[in-house]
Deep mutational scan, measured.
Amino acid sequence: KDKDLLKGLDQEQANEVIAVLQMHNIEANKIDSGKLGYSITVAEPDFTAAVYWIK
């Protein structure tokens, strides 16, 4: 199951987060929520590491 990592990002921010996570071998998903911006989700086992790397 995926957990929400970040919400309300613009496309550039979302792409930067995806890139950082991929560099650390964390699979992440970018979801277009329309006017609400983009959300990033990661698998539950990767959540703690993902939070660490996006600081």
Rank of each mutant, 00 (worst) to 15 (best):
K30D: 01
I54T: 05
T48Y: 13
K35V: 12
V42I: 08
E12I: 09
K30Y: 07
G37E: 03
A19S: 08
K30T: 07
A14Y: 03
L5R: 02
E12M: 10
L9E: 01
A14L: 04
A28S: 06
A43L: 07
V42L: 04
W53D: 00
E44L: 10
G37Q: 05
E16H: 14
D32P: 08
E12N: 10
D46T: 04
W53E: 02
Y38H: 03
Y38D: 01
V42D: 01
H24L: 05
N25P: 01
I18Y: 05
I40W: 02
A50D: 02
S33L: 15
A49K: 09
M23V: 07
I54P: 03
A19P: 00
V51H: 08
W53G: 00
Q22M: 11
P45Q: 14
Y52H: 12
A19M: 10
V42Y: 02
P45D: 14
D10H: 06
D10E: 05
I26R: 00
K3M: 13
S33W: 15
N25K: 07
G34K: 04
L21Q: 03
L6F: 10
N15E: 09
E44I: 06
L9S: 02
L36K: 09
K35Q: 09
E12L: 10
D2G: 11
D32F: 14
K1I: 11
E16G: 08
S33D: 14
N29K: 14
S33V: 11
K1F: 10
A49H: 06
G34S: 03
E44V: 08
S39K: 14
A28N: 02
L36Q: 10
E12R: 12
V42F: 02
V51K: 09
E16M: 13
F47N: 00
A43V: 04
K7P: 02
I40G: 00
A50M: 03
M23A: 12
D32I: 06
D10P: 05
Q13F: 07
V51Y: 11
A14Q: 01
K3D: 03
G37C: 09
M23N: 08
I26F: 01
D2L: 14
I26A: 00
F47D: 00
I26V: 04
I26Y: 03
K35F: 10
F47L: 05
G8H: 08
A19Y: 11
L5W: 03
I54H: 02
H24F: 06
D32C: 14
L36H: 12
Y52S: 06
D32K: 09
A49G: 04
D2K: 11
A50R: 00
D32S: 09
A50Q: 02
M23H: 11
P45G: 14
A28C: 10
D10M: 06
D4N: 12
D10R: 09
N15G: 04
T48M: 13
D4V: 15
L5E: 01
N15A: 10
A49P: 03
V42S: 02
T48V: 12
G8W: 07
D10C: 13
V17R: 00
K1G: 10
I18H: 03
N15M: 08
V42K: 00
W53A: 09
E44A: 12
L5K: 01
A43C: 07
Q13C: 15
V51L: 13
D4E: 15
I31L: 06
D32H: 10
K7N: 11
E27F: 13
T48L: 14
I31E: 04
Y52R: 10
D32W: 14
A19V: 07
K1Y: 10
T41Q: 09
E16W: 15
F47P: 00
D2C: 14
I18W: 06
F47C: 06
L21N: 02
V20K: 08
I18M: 11
K3S: 05
T48A: 14
G37A: 03
A49Y: 07
A50Y: 03
L6D: 03
D32A: 09
G8D: 04
N15H: 06
I18G: 00
H24P: 00
